[in-house]
Design a protein around this nucleic acid. Structure first.
Lengths: 121, 121
DNA sequence: CCGGTATATTCGCAAGTTCGAATATGAGGT
DNA sequence: ACCTCATATTCGAACTTGCGAATATACCGG
């Protein structure tokens, strides 16, 4: 019984366990957007975007709304944003503790200053 | 923008994307506990517990403390529990919105490749 | 009906995950 | 030193995931 809840949580985590899908959810934070716009904004293959959207759809994380030619996607429940908000706090604490990781992120992103907090979900 | 940060987030999600590892984290909610106790409480193989603990350790979700023969594990940051708590709220809302969501989750888990035939209603 | 545009799905393959069995390490007691 | 208990790691098989190429579906205008 409690196992069903854990499986559900694990599936939500699995659905978010990919950088591209995190990027998609971050994009949808500001409101609905078409699949094509996601493709352009993230610079991905069309099929790839559609596959990742299918994963998010399958776990009911996003919902699709058809309007003529295009399909608009949006976050299904604002409560998921609360989950991401608590994760943001967690990541901030982890990043401030793991300074060597922070440095590696800075080096890889080639940004002179620290991590922009606005980027976090 | 910050792909390295998104990869880091995705790795944390991946680390939690398994029912057993969620169960371990929930067990550790009440304080530190030995690997052997986790094995007994969850009824798992010894190697399996150790492998899952290695994943959680690798992402710094838990920390290990050796005391003689045994190894005590504990949650590294209590903020992670806030994440799981908000995820439970999310789950409860999903249930109240669609009472058969659990069944669809179970059906989908039983049929791995099965995704809703129609994207839109 | 035909063409074009937007999105979805299928396919094949490489890469990653999970599990139990077997094996290895580490610590304490004799 | 040896033995034992607790935990970790390695190995191989089954399974899953991610990707681009190709293909399919849906909608709209002419």
């Amino acid at each position: 019984m409690d196992d069903a809840l854990r499986r559900f949580k694990a599936e939500i985590f699995s659905a978010l366990a990919h950088p591209t899908r995190i990027a998609i959810v971050e994009l949808l934070r500001d409101g609905e957007i078409t699949a094509g716009a996601i493709m352009v904004r993230l610079g991905l293959e069309q099929a790839n975007v559609s596959q990742h959207l299918a994963v998010l759809r399958g776990k009911s994380i996003v919902v699709a709304r058809r309007e003529g030619n295009q399909v608009f996607y949006s976050i299904r429940s604002p409560l998921l944003l609360d989950v991401l908000a608590s994760l943001r706090t967690y990541f901030e604490q982890q990043l401030s503790q793991a300074s060597d990781l922070l440095l590696s992120i800075q080096a890889e992103a080639a940004t002179p200053t620290g991590v922009d907090p606005e980027v976090l979900p």
